[in-house]
């Protein structure tokens, strides 16, 4: 009969309309109270009806892998030997993999010897250009740069606030562990320590190791077997992966003078060739 299709559709709309009130009645409009439990009711998988999030009063928490403008990790303030030190060694890999090229790094030099030191003098990220791709965090061999979860970066003046410098970028290691506990834990397993790789090396050389024996974060305890083996393997893994430093550009300050000279000559040659071809 003509019109039945229409009627069926309208019945569905009506059902949706009614459903958006049923929950309200069931929870006596408590649903809209800005408290944890009510938010959960509205955002659960089985919720029907209105699911609007009342931003900014309420916020949907982001998953661990969520990526927004990156930050740099520095050692926690209560660290015995390296408090406040950068994890970044200014190897430059993040600046190379950055697709829109919005990372600028000034490699530090030792004022006495003139040699590069493994801590950046300047580190800038233009957040207007950053496309939040996450490559810098993905390819950093020292776990020194991570994607943040803080997405509220609006400011009144874009011309002076949107290039983040080292001071603004730096956040303590404990912050990373708080926003992404399971990932931080997995990285710790690979690195062999909760601290920077170098700290582990120093520790092995001399004083007592501060390798943590913290339990795996609760979210991942669902998979006990692999974790247990991983934990057991932790003591070995402390040495193995740390030793396999990435081949290119990772540790230029460890090279001797002749080798560095050689590298520089080659780089200049490459550049000249490139310039010749680029015309």
């Amino acid at each position: 009969m003509y019109g039945t299709g229409l009627a069926k559709g309208l019945r569905l709309t009506l059902r949706h309309f009614v459903e958006s009130y049923i929950d309200d009645l069931r929870y006596g409009f408590r649903k809209y109270h800005h408290s944890t439990d009510n938010f959960g009711i509205r955002q659960g998988t089985q919720t029907k009806g209105v699911i609007t999030v009342q931003y900014p009063d309420e916020k949907v928490a982001v998953p661990e892998r969520f990526r927004f403008v990156p930050f740099l990790i520095v050692e926690d303030e209560d660290h015995p030997t390296r408090a406040g030190k950068d994890w970044c060694t200014s190897c430059g890999i993040c600046a190379k993999v950055c697709p829109p090229q919005c990372i600028w790094i000034v490699r530090g030099n030792d004022p006495d010897t003139g040699r590069p030191v493994p801590e950046p003098e300047g580190f800038f990220i233009d957040i207007d250009i950053c496309m939040n791709c996450g490559y810098c965090a993905e390819y950093c061999p020292f776990d020194a740069i991570k994607m943040d979860h803080d997405y509220e970066l609006a400011s009144y003046d874009r011309t002076s606030h949107h290039i983040h410098d080292k001071e603004k970028l730096s956040k303590p290691n404990s912050y990373w562990r708080s926003i992404a506990p399971t990932r931080a834990y997995d990285e710790m397993l690979v690195r062999g320590t909760w601290e920077h790789k170098d700290a582990a090396k120093e520790a092995r050389r001399g004083s007592a190791s501060s390798r943590a024996s913290a339990p795996r974060p609760a979210a991942q305890q669902a998979a006990p077997a692999p974790v247990a083996t991983a934990l057991a393997a932790e003591s070995e893994s402390a040495t193995a992966p740390a030793a396999s430093a990435p081949a290119e550009g990772a540790t230029p300050w460890n090279e001797d003078e002749a080798k560095r000279e050689e590298r520089r000559r080659k780089a200049l040659e490459r550049k000249a060739k490139r310039a010749a071809r680029g015309g």
Partner: peptide, 24 residues
């Protein structure tokens, strides 16, 4: 790929109010 599937959709540690959306 960038990574395998995470074990859980949301992390328990995550901020304030979103325990309900934490699924396997």
């Amino acid at each position: 790929l960038f990574g395998d599937l995470p074990e859980r959709i949301k992390s328990v540690s995550n901020l304030t109010n979103d325990r309900v959306r934490d699924y396997n």
